[in-house]
């Protein structure tokens, strides 16, 4: 724990120095013409499918707008549950020494939602709905905290790949690029913290877990990676972009080899991290 507290202190200093006002960081423009790129083409969920290849430039750019709204929406849903979970654990017995950094964590995640929500509400008039559902169950000692932070880490590692790519893609619309940049800069700290806390909790509690609990955790985390990816294939996006048979498109894009290769490439880092520490045994079927 001492090393995480030390890390949290350093992260606090960086957070304080780079403190941002979310209401002045972005200058929102009144309207947003859709005939420009909002997501790097290779990150669009159906990129590489025959359906994508059939679209003309205008249709691809409109699709990129709704894909970006979906990316921001899934971030809002992910961060909402993150904020709930962090707030619940603030000043808990286990994590009380990390409270100063958890305050920054909460603050920064709240700001991210202001950016994401600001974009979605202003320019799309909505945030896409969430389809993820967690059913309450009993946990072994330390399991719930471990899974909570492991879920955050998986979610943020995947998102960060997108943020890094889009923050440097100069063909993208400026506000979109700016949101991706600020998200990456702050998430980079959350990821460093996340890896450490996940390792700490696993090392502390896993020796007391039964083989069955451990096996369930390994299967759950592998399945969680798959479910997280499924949110990137949203039929509502395809409907809004005017594409036919949106539910069939979800399935065909998911099963397209180049889309599978993309998911594997983006997930490689987090899978390696989890595998090396026996937090998952087998690679998820992406």
């Amino acid at each position: 724990m001492a090393s995480i507290v030390e890390l949290a202190k350093r992260l606090c200093e960086v957070s304080e120095k780079s403190y941002l006002n979310p209401y002045t960081y972005i200058t929102w423009q009144e309207s947003m013409p859709k005939e420009q790129w909002f997501m790097s083409p290779e990150l669009i969920s159906i990129y590489g499918t025959s359906e994508y290849d059939k679209l003309d430039l205008k249709q691809k750019q409109i699709l990129s707008f709704y894909e970006s709204v979906n990316f921001f929406s899934l971030n809002i849903h992910g961060e909402k549950s993150l904020v709930e979970g962090i707030a619940h654990r603030l000043y808990s017995k286990e994590l009380k020494d990390l409270a100063p950094y958890l305050h920054h964590f909460l603050d920064e995640e709240n700001k991210h939602m202001i950016y994401f929500g600001g974009f979605c509400q202003r320019y799309a008039g909505k945030v896409y709905r969430n389809r993820k559902l967690e059913i309450p169950r009993e946990y072994a000692k330390g399991e719930e905290d471990f899974l909570f932070f492991a879920r955050i880490l998986i979610f943020e590692e995947l998102v960060d790949f997108y943020n890094i790519r889009m923050s440097t893609d100069e063909t993208l619309e400026a506000i979109t690029r700016q949101i991706n940049l600020v998200h990456h800069l702050e998430e980079a700290r959350h990821l460093v913290f996340g890896r450490q806390i996940v390792e700490y909790l696993f090392e502390k509690y896993s020796p007391s877990w039964s083989e069955k609990v451990r096996r369930n955790i390994q299967e759950y985390l592998a399945a969680y990676i798959v479910t997280t990816w499924k949110e990137y294939y949203n039929p509502d996006v395809y409907t809004d972009a005017g594409l036919p048979e949106p539910y069939d498109l979800v399935e065909s894009a998911w099963n397209t080899e180049s889309c599978r290769a993309h998911r594997k490439k983006v997930s490689a880092k987090i899978i390696e991290f989890l595998k090396e520490r026996n937090m998952i045994l087998e690679e998820p079927v992406l």
Binding site: R131, K132, L133, A223, Y224, K230, P235
Partner: peptide, 13 residues
């Protein structure tokens, strides 16, 4: 599992 409910929701829609 609860993680598969997202797929079930898509199926129902």
């Amino acid at each position: 599992t609860s993680l598969q409910i997202m797929d079930l929701i898509l199926q129902l829609e």
